[in-house]
Design a protein around this nucleic acid. Structure first.
Lengths: 222, 222
DNA sequence: GACAATCATTGGCGGAGTGCCAGTAAGCGG
DNA sequence: CCGCTTACTGGCACTCCGCCAATGATTGTC
C-alpha cells in the first residue's frame, strides 16, 4: 500500500540514466507534443511530466525552451537517406527520376504520421535559427536531386540550378501533402506530376542559363 | 516648459481615436514586430509600447495574443487582386499565363519587403487556426490560377486539379523567394521557370484525370 | 456654455510559465 | 565502508498574459 514497496517493484524516487539516453527520451516527448500543438501552448512543465522528469532537467539538458524546440525540429528533419539509383548504360534520365520518386513516395507512405507531423511543425515563423535548420534540410534534398539527375557538378557553378531545385522541392512537398494529408491526390498522381514537372524543368535549364546570371552574391537589396 | 503645451504640440495623456483606426494602428505594429521575431519572443508589452498604447488595450481589441497574431497574419495574406487577362480570340494560353505571371512578379517587386516579411511569418507551426488561414489564402491563389488558365469549371468537379495547383503555388512561392530573398534567381528566370512548368502541368492534366480519382472526401487515414 | 452619458483607454491584480541555482542522492572507485 | 562525481530535484525571482474596475476624452442635449 505504501509507495516505496508497491506492486511495481521498488519505484525509486530518482532513476538515474545515462545523459544521452535521458536526452533522447526528453527529446522524443518534446517532439510528440510540439507536433500536436503550437510552440507557445506547450509548456515545459508538460514536457517534463510526459518524460517523467522534473522541469529543471529540461533546462539542464537543453538550456532554454527554444533550444529544446530547435533540437526537436532538427531531429525530425533528419530523414534516412534514399539510395541514388546507380548510373547504368542506356538508362534514361526519366527512369532514374521515376525510380527516385518511387523511393521518396515509398518512404513517405511508410512514415505517414511522422512526416505529416514534421511538416506541420516544420515551419519557421520569423525565427532565423529555425529557418537555418530548415534551409539545411532543403539543401540536402537539393543535393540529392542534383545527384539523381546527374547535375551535381553544374549545380556547383550555377546557383540558379540549385535555386530552381529548391522551387521544385517546395512543389514536391506541397504535392505530397495533398496526397497524405488532404487525400486530394493519389500516389500515382503525385508521381506523375512530380516526374513530368522535373523532366520539364530539366529541359528548361539551357534557356535558364542563357539568362544573365543573378547578382554575384546574396545582396538582394541593392 | 510644462508638459501640456510643450514643443510637440499638446501631448495629451490620452488620445482617443476611432476604434477602427486604433485597431489598424495596433495591427500594423504587431505585423511589423511579428515579422521580425518569432511569436513567443514578441511580448504584448512591446507591441503596446510600439503603438504608444497601454497593454490592456490589445486585449480589449483582439482578446488574446494569439488572436492578435492571427489577425496580423490574416492581414498580411490579403493581396491586392491581380486582374485576370480578358479572353481574346486567338490568344494562346501561353500568353495569358505569361501576362499573369508578369503581373504577379510586378506586384512582388513593388512590395519586396512586405512580401518577404509575410513569407517569413507565414508559416504555421502546428497551429490549426493559423493553418486554416494560410489554406484560405492559398485557395484564393488557386482560384485565381484556374481562372487565368480557364479551368475553373473543371476544377470544381475534380479536386485533383486544385491539388495540383496547390503544389504549383508552393513552387511559385519558393521560386519567387529565391529571387527576392536570396537573389539566386533573376526575375526573368523566375518567369521562365514558372511559365514553362505551369504549361507543362496543364499538359499533364488529361493523364492526371485518367488515374483513378482520389478517395471521395478528406479521409486520409482509412 | 454647462452637464451628463458614452465608451475608448488605463493601471494594476492574480495566475502561469520560464530560467536559474543551491541542495540532494544515486552510482562508482578506493 | 567512505567519499567523490554528477544526474537530478525543488523552489525562488522574474516576466508575461488575461481580466476588470476606474478614468477621462468626446459627443449629444438643454
Amino acid at each position: 500500500m505504501s509507495d516505496d514497496a508497491a506492486g511495481e517493484g521498488t519505484p525509486p524516487r530518482r532513476v538515474r540514466k545515462e545523459p544521452d539516453e535521458r536526452r533522447d527520451q526528453i527529446l522524443a516527448c518534446a517532439r510528440r507534443l510540439f507536433s500536436r500543438r503550437p510552440y507557445a501552448e506547450v509548456s515545459n512543465t508538460e514536457i517534463a511530466a510526459a518524460a517523467g522528469v522534473s522541469r529543471g532537467l529540461l533546462n539542464h539538458y537543453f538550456g532554454t525552451k527554444r533550444e529544446l524546440y530547435l533540437a526537436a525540429v532538427s531531429k525530425m528533419m533528419s530523414v534516412p537517406p534514399i539510395p541514388i539509383p546507380p548510373f547504368v548504360e542506356g538508362a534514361e534520365v526519366r527512369d532514374r527520376v521515376g525510380q527516385s520518386l518511387d523511393a521518396w513516395l515509398e518512404l513517405l507512405e511508410r512514415n505517414r504520421e511522422t512526416w505529416v507531423a514534421a511538416l506541420d511543425m516544420t515551419t519557421s515563423g520569423g525565427d532565423e535559427d529555425l529557418e537555418r535548420i530548415l534551409e539545411e534540410g532543403r539543401d540536402r534534398a537539393v543535393d540529392h536531386m542534383t545527384e539523381v539527375v546527374g547535375l551535381t557538378p553544374l549545380s556547383r557553378d550555377r546557383p540558379e540550378i540549385r535555386a530552381a531545385f529548391h522551387g521544385y522541392a517546395a512543389m514536391a512537398v506541397a504535392t505530397s501533402r495533398e496526397w497524405l494529408k488532404t487525400g486530394r491526390l493519389t500516389r500515382a498522381q503525385v508521381h506523375l506530376i512530380l516526374q513530368e514537372v522535373l523532366l520539364n524543368l530539366l529541359d528548361q535549364f539551357p534557356r535558364l542559363l542563357e539568362e544573365e546570371p543573378p547578382r554575384p552574391a546574396g545582396d538582394a537589396r541593392p
